[in-house]
Measured scan of single mutants.
Amino acid sequence: DVEPGKFYKGVVTRIEKYGAFINLNEQVRGLLRPRDMISLRLENLNVGDEIIVQAIDVRPEKREIDFKYIP
């Protein structure tokens, strides 16, 4: 289970104008929005990159997770 405030290693699987989709595993995916990136820009991410993200909002009923990147 993903818990708000905890850090997780994930893989960038898709990049859109509104953010990057990060997979923690095959069943768990969330969104990293540009506003939640500190010292990292969306255009510097590539599909396949491994990054450490912090879960900031977890909505299991909608199967949605918002992430934050903190270097």
Rank of each mutant, 00 (worst) to 15 (best):
D1R: 15
D1A: 15
V2D: 03
E3Q: 15
E3P: 05
P4S: 11
P4Y: 10
P4H: 08
P4M: 13
P4C: 10
P4R: 14
G5D: 06
G5E: 05
K6F: 09
K6G: 09
K6W: 08
F7E: 05
F7K: 06
F7Q: 06
K9R: 14
K9F: 10
K9H: 12
K9P: 06
K9T: 10
K9L: 12
V11Y: 14
V11I: 14
V12P: 00
V12A: 01
T13Y: 08
T13Q: 07
T13N: 05
R14G: 08
R14P: 00
R14C: 06
R14T: 07
R14A: 12
I15R: 03
E16S: 11
E16Q: 09
K17T: 13
K17Q: 12
Y18Q: 06
Y18F: 13
A20C: 06
A20L: 04
A20N: 00
A20P: 00
A20D: 00
A20I: 06
F21V: 10
F21C: 05
F21W: 15
F21H: 07
F21L: 09
F21A: 03
I22T: 00
I22V: 12
I22E: 00
N23K: 13
N23A: 14
N23R: 12
L24F: 04
L24Q: 01
L24M: 04
L24G: 01
N25V: 05
N25E: 06
N25H: 09
E26N: 14
E26M: 13
E26T: 14
E26Y: 14
Q27D: 13
V28L: 14
V28E: 06
V28T: 13
V28A: 08
R29A: 11
R29L: 09
R29N: 08
G30S: 01
L31E: 01
L31F: 08
L31Q: 02
L31W: 05
L32W: 04
L32Q: 01
L32V: 03
L32S: 01
L32A: 01
R33P: 01
R33V: 04
R33N: 03
P34M: 09
P34A: 12
P34S: 11
R35P: 05
R35V: 09
R35C: 07
R35S: 10
R35G: 10
D36E: 06
D36L: 05
D36A: 06
D36G: 04
M37Q: 03
I38P: 08
I38A: 11
I38G: 15
I38Y: 12
I38V: 13
I38T: 12
I38K: 10
S39G: 15
L40H: 05
L40F: 06
L40Q: 06
R41I: 09
R41N: 11
R41F: 10
L42T: 04
E43C: 10
E43M: 09
E43I: 11
E43P: 06
E43G: 10
E43R: 11
N44P: 03
N44H: 15
N44A: 13
N44D: 15
L45W: 02
L45T: 02
N46P: 01
N46F: 15
N46Q: 15
N46S: 15
V47W: 06
V47R: 06
V47E: 07
V47F: 05
G48T: 03
G48N: 07
G48A: 04
G48Q: 04
G48H: 05
G48F: 07
D49I: 06
D49C: 07
D49R: 05
E50R: 15
E50K: 14
I51Q: 00
I52W: 13
I52G: 03
V53C: 04
Q54S: 06
Q54K: 10
Q54C: 10
A55W: 03
A55I: 15
A55H: 01
A55V: 15
I56G: 07
I56T: 10
I56V: 12
D57G: 15
D57H: 14
D57S: 15
D57N: 15
D57T: 13
D57M: 13
V58R: 05
V58W: 08
V58S: 08
V58E: 03
V58H: 06
R59W: 06
R59G: 05
R59C: 04
P60V: 12
P60E: 09
E61G: 13
E61F: 07
E61N: 13
E61S: 13
E61A: 12
K62P: 06
K62A: 11
K62N: 10
K62H: 09
R63A: 12
R63K: 14
R63S: 12
R63D: 11
R63E: 11
R63Y: 12
E64G: 07
E64K: 08
E64Y: 13
I65P: 02
I65G: 03
D66G: 07
D66I: 10
F67T: 02
F67L: 11
F67P: 01
F67N: 01
F67D: 01
K68C: 08
K68T: 08
K68F: 09
Y69R: 02
Y69Q: 05
Y69N: 05
I70T: 12
I70N: 11
I70P: 04
I70G: 07
P71F: 06
P71R: 08
P71E: 08
P71Q: 08
